[in-house]
Nucleic acid binder design. Structure first.
Lengths: 234, 234
DNA sequence: ATCTTGTATTTGTATGAGTATAATTGCATC
DNA sequence: GATGCAATTATACTCATACAAATACAAGAT
């Protein structure tokens, strides 16, 4: 069987580059809420791109709630409360720089709410096939370890399967974003970790609670898993 | 003191119209995931707009994860799992048509997870000023009732203040989206409600639990509030 | 079969002109 | 002085056109 050629994201388009540059600057606080980005022609010229590319970048940022444009008034950064903080791109832009510690705290707090609830839902609704898949993923994870690419992939698979087992599309998309964000943060700190602990045991406990259809147990198991993960970073 | 002129959204721009039209069609299932919107020139001509406006609309939809474009391959609708289901615009587009019952169920389920947790956080972190504001809002709500615009505004204020009291920016933006979505759905069904129940008592219980700094009580009170609200719709 | 190479199709970028919107200003009025 | 109304004007918005770049696909070479 052929390995299907991995879908290549391709080179970043110009308007995406512009959106990333300005978006990152906004999230880093270079342009505070209320700040003015008035003057399409000057701004685009200053970046050395056409107004077309610049405007399309603005549309992307506006779609994510970071800016707002009106004729005569110009383009301004919106208050933080309107930003789509869980958007995948916004998340990535946030973690290009040093992320605000308060933001990371908020993120973990939300994770602590969402993921145990998701585990409980999964325990109630999982199919046999999903349990099979989760067990298989943990098996690979145990055999290869988290040091290998395969092991990390299996870890991802496990969590993805768990989310899908909730049968709640909104929870899936949300927890997916949060999980990705948390991985970004751990990626930072994990550099220093000389001796990583083996996280397999708590994964197994969680998996079996879900297999048993035990929402309360799954909730508690996920809580424990998150507690241990957080402990590893301190 | 002058009342600042209320910010008027103004007329919808052309590219926003196009984005709304196609976005709504995607969410309504007219264009299923994988469906092709190939041919910018033809598509834009068919809608009677310039290619510029059409492309800017595409950038908006792409920013919300609904579509994906690549040269030669064309533009296609992405799988549902990538959609930003909690984006304000996406929510609005969803509720222009008959929303999928499963989606509404998922939304309420998430609300049942988020809002009690938010109430508990608020109980731990609220300031005195915030408690004052929440009490004042409930006072107005009790005096005017939910039949008046002022009363509904006070209800919104209460919930907004509660969220702000969590001190968690991510929870605020998230719960704000979910709350807005839930209001859309209730707006549908509430038409038929001949005799609305007075929701003030459970609001007061919740408010006092938060004022007392009682996370467990606040969690339970919010659960009860949501249970009653859901009951009103059945 | 597999790899390379070419080619055609589609989106991406650039530019310039003109339009529409709304913040601002100035003026008249109360 | 404050308020309401009209003209001004800065700014984003829309359009049309041309060209560039990327890439899926097919044809050919190995």
């Amino acid at each position: 069987m052929h390995m299907k050629k991995a879908k290549r994201p391709g080179p970043e388009r110009l308007h995406q580059q512009v959106a990333r540059t300005i978006g990152s600057a906004i999230l880093a606080g270079v342009h505070a809420p209320g700040a003015s980005l008035v003057g399409e022609v000057e701004q685009s010229a200053a970046m050395g791109v056409s107004r077309t590319a610049y405007r399309e970048a603005m549309k992307i940022l506006a779609a994510k709630g970071l800016i707002e444009s009106r004729p005569k008034a110009g383009t301004h950064v919106t208050p933080r409360s309107r930003w789509a903080l869980l958007d995948p791109d916004v998340l990535a832009w946030t973690f290009t720089g040093e992320p605000d510690p308060a933001y990371v705290r908020d993120l973990f707090e939300l994770r602590g709410v969402i993921e145990p609830a998701a585990a409980a839902l999964a325990a109630e609704r999982r199919s046999e096939a999903q349990v099979e898949g989760m067990r298989a993923a943990l098996s690979v994870m145990g055999a290869k370890g988290l040091a290998t690419e395969e092991g990390r992939q299996a870890d991802n698979d496990f969590h993805r399967l768990l989310l899908e087992a909730t049968g709640n599309a909104v929870v899936v998309s949300l927890a997916g974003s949060v999980g990705a964000a948390v991985q970004w943060t751990t990626h930072f700190k994990q550099q220093k970790q000389s001796k990583p602990r083996d996280p397999l045991p708590e994964h197994l406990v969680l998996c079996e609670a879900i297999a048993d259809g035990d929402p309360v147990g799954a909730h508690a198991a996920m809580n424990e898993l998150l507690r241990l993960a957080l402990e590893d970073m301190a």
